[in-house]
Amino acid sequence: MIAGELESGKPIDQVYVDSLCVALIAGLACSTRNGSASYAALPPWKLRRVLDFVEDNLSEVITIEDQASVAGMSRSWFCRAFKASTGVSPHQWILVARIERAKLHLLRREQTLAEIALTVGFADQAHFTRAFHRMVGESPGAWQRARER
């Protein structure tokens, strides 16, 4: 659905695209649950609350304490329950969400790489480029050029 919206050539409603991304990430989380985890997973409503908090605050510093507070849990218990729910650590989840949001900005071509980096919550363009390359396998600029119309 996201690809269809991006390829349609029509103006894209950011809220709609963000909600599709959240649905995609939540769907992936549900499909990658680790059934052998020794810690109980977060209840779906707590997981949704944390994921919404993360999406709403991507441009800010998001601490484990903030997320644990949203879930109403201690820091250590939250980390274990989050990983049991999603298969990844809270930090890794945030990185993936930031990279996915950055990809949307890159496709729009309205901001520089430095502006995108700050918009999605990276410390600077170098941090963004390193994280993007590590996760995607190419630099943000190369990724963007490969998708030129």
Rank of each mutant, 00 (worst) to 15 (best):
E7K: 14
G141D: 11
I62K: 01
A146G: 00
L106A: 13
R80G: 06
S59R: 14
A102H: 03
D18N: 10
L51Q: 08
Q67K: 08
L24Q: 08
A102W: 06
Y16C: 08
E7T: 15
F78N: 04
S76Y: 09
H91I: 11
L47S: 06
W77R: 15
L58K: 06
T32W: 01
E115G: 05
W93R: 02
H91D: 04
M73T: 03
A142I: 13
L6E: 07
L51Y: 00
K10L: 15
T119Y: 02
H91V: 15
V136D: 02
E138L: 11
A29R: 07
R145C: 03
K10W: 10
P44Y: 00
V136L: 06
K83L: 09
A142Y: 03
E148G: 05
S38R: 15
Q111C: 08
T112C: 07
A29S: 14
S36I: 15
R147H: 06
F78P: 03
W45H: 10
P11D: 12
R48M: 11
S31G: 09
F132L: 02
F82I: 07
A26H: 05
D13C: 14
I12S: 13
H91S: 12
H105W: 00
A68N: 03
G72Q: 02
L106F: 05
L6D: 08
G27A: 07
A123M: 13
A84R: 02
L118M: 10
A114E: 06
L106Q: 09
A97N: 01
S59Q: 09
C21L: 11
V22H: 00
V88M: 09
A23D: 10
L20F: 05
Q92N: 06
K10H: 15
D66Q: 05
R98W: 04
V136M: 01
E115M: 07
P11T: 13
F78Y: 12
R130H: 12
P140G: 05
Y16H: 13
R134F: 01
L47I: 08
S69Y: 00
D66P: 05
N34Q: 13
V70R: 01
R109H: 10
D66I: 02
V96T: 12
E138Y: 08
E5F: 14
E100T: 13
S36V: 10
P44H: 04
R149T: 08
W93F: 11
Q67C: 09
L20P: 01
R145D: 01
I62T: 03
S74A: 12
R145H: 02
E110C: 11
A40F: 04
G4S: 11
T112N: 01
F78R: 00
P90K: 00
S74K: 08
W45M: 08
P44L: 08
L20Y: 04
E148C: 02
V22W: 07
L106M: 09
L47M: 09
R98A: 05
L47C: 04
Q14D: 15
H127N: 12
L24V: 12
V70K: 05
Q14S: 15
H133D: 05
M73Q: 04
L58D: 05
I25R: 08
P43H: 07
D56C: 14
H133Q: 09
S36T: 15
R33D: 05
P44S: 11
E55P: 03
A3W: 10
R80H: 09
R48C: 06
T119D: 04
M73D: 01
A126F: 09
A81G: 01
R48Q: 11
S38Y: 06
C79M: 13
W93P: 03
V17Q: 00
V50W: 03
C79A: 14
A146R: 00
C30N: 12
R75I: 10
